[in-house]
Simulated scan of single mutants.
Amino acid sequence: MKKVIGYFLFVLSFMSWAAIASLPFLNLSIEKSAAITTALIVGGEIAFVLSIALLGKEFLGKIKTFLNRFNFFRKEK
């Protein structure tokens, strides 16, 4: 059950960024858009951290391996 919740939170963290991208198409004031964007960013980051905590070091290693393909964590010499 812990892994299911972890994967759900991981997907939810990326869905929050997709929701941010859809905000300009809604008829909202600037203030409401800013408040919703802030809440979605904070909520998405919290969901991501909780998912990593629930899924463990192995899952974090898989994410780092995937991102290393794009040289995100390459050390400069």
Rank of each mutant, 00 (worst) to 15 (best):
I52K: 08
F10V: 00
V11F: 15
L26I: 03
L40S: 06
K57C: 00
F73E: 04
I52P: 01
G61R: 13
T38H: 02
K64Q: 11
L26G: 01
A19T: 10
A21D: 10
I41P: 01
R69G: 12
I5R: 03
L54T: 06
S22M: 05
N68L: 02
Y7Q: 11
A35H: 04
A47K: 03
W17G: 11
G6K: 13
I5V: 15
I36V: 14
G6P: 11
I30D: 13
G43P: 02
A47P: 10
I5A: 13
F48G: 00
F48Q: 04
T38Q: 08
A35L: 11
S29W: 02
G61L: 05
R74M: 02
L54E: 06
K77R: 12
K32Y: 07
F8S: 15
L26V: 02
I36N: 01
A21G: 09
F8H: 08
F10Q: 03
F10A: 12
S13H: 08
P24L: 10
K57T: 08
N27K: 14
S33P: 00
G61K: 14
F48H: 09
K62P: 00
F8G: 03
E58Y: 09
I30N: 06
V42M: 08
I46K: 02
E31D: 11
L12Q: 05
I30V: 14
E76D: 05
F72Y: 13
I63D: 00
L9C: 04
V11C: 08
R74H: 04
S51P: 04
G43Q: 09
K3G: 06
M15H: 04
V11N: 02
A19N: 00
T65D: 08
L9K: 08
I30Y: 07
I41N: 01
L12D: 05
S22Y: 04
L55A: 03
